[in-house]
């Protein structure tokens, strides 16, 4: 089976984010980057599918040279090889999906895994974009996945208040949600092996962004509210304020 897992190179959530000089994106200096946490579930799902059905797991990442370290993290978990679509230019999600689609062309993908969301731009859109561009089914926010011998897929996805069972057929794009599996930790041996695994560089076709970032700003800082009081004695005042001032009850 030709299994592909898209991985995203994102700032660690505890990193301080500063708006850069362009006023349209973050200043990357001093930012620590990690493998997008949801992509660990995606890589694990790819590895489990390979273990069950045989084949290869190939990681795909679009971004500048620095994303190679993120591809290596996925290789250390056990993926076989990587494709790095090398680009520095600002790219919208559509353009990122287009670059991945181009890279997968002629590679006869059987299954493509992505994360629920990339924790930088939180778009939750790559799964659907890729499904549509590749012309194959997609199921997003998957917490349970069963792929039968004949390629029939039965998945559960999170919806408001519960879950939805969705069926489809391979080839398909699946976005991984927490709960799908327990991602394995890379072992030292895996980390060593990852250094020798091949990463193929690919140049993306020229692309003009469809979504334009007009500006990036720091959110308006909310003024810290007031401490109504200490201990149970304060609840009377709190209820009064919620009613009279905040008008929420």
């Amino acid at each position: 089976m030709n299994i592909f897992v898209c991985v995203s190179h994102v700032p660690d959530t505890t990193t301080k984010v500063q708006v850069g000089g362009s006023g349209k994106e973050i200043d990357p200096s001093g930012v620590t980057y990690i493998l997008n946490p949801y992509d660990e579930y995606a890589v694990e799902a790819g590895l489990q599918l390979k273990e069950a059905r045989g084949g290869d797991v190939t990681l795909v990442c679009v971004g500048p040279e620095a994303v190679k370290e993120t591809i290596r993290k996925g290789l250390a978990m056990g993926a076989d090889k990587g494709i790095h679509v090398v680009t520095d230019a600002p790219r919208d999600s559509f353009g990122t999906a287009r670059a991945i689609t181009d890279a997968l062309k002629d590679r006869a993908a059987d299954a493509v895994f992505v994360g629920r969301q990339s924790i930088d731009y939180d778009g939750w859109q790559m799964c659907g974009l890729l499904g549509e561009m590749l012309g194959i089914p997609s199921i997003s926010v998957v917490t349970k996945l069963d792929i039968a011998e004949d390629g029939t897929i039965s998945a559960e996805r999170d919806i408001e208040g519960g879950s939805e069972t969705v069926t489809t057929k391979l080839p398909a794009v699946i976005s991984a949600q927490k709960g799908l599996n327990d991602p394995r930790y890379p072992k030292l041996q895996g980390i060593m092996a990852a250094k020798r695994k091949p990463i193929e560089d690919v140049a993306p076709a020229p692309y003009e962004n469809r979504v334009e970032v007009i500006e990036m700003t720091k959110p308006a800082i909310k003024e810290a509210g007031r401490i109504v009081g200490e201990g149970p004695a304060a609840v009377k005042d709190l209820v009064r304020l919620l009613h009279e001032e905040a008008k929420v009850i």
Binding site: I26, E212, T217
Partner: peptide, 13 residues
């Protein structure tokens, strides 16, 4: 975006 650490204003071209 970035877990609420910044906000982007966008338009679709």
């Amino acid at each position: 975006v970035y877990a609420g650490k910044s906000v982007i204003k966008v338009k679709i071209n």
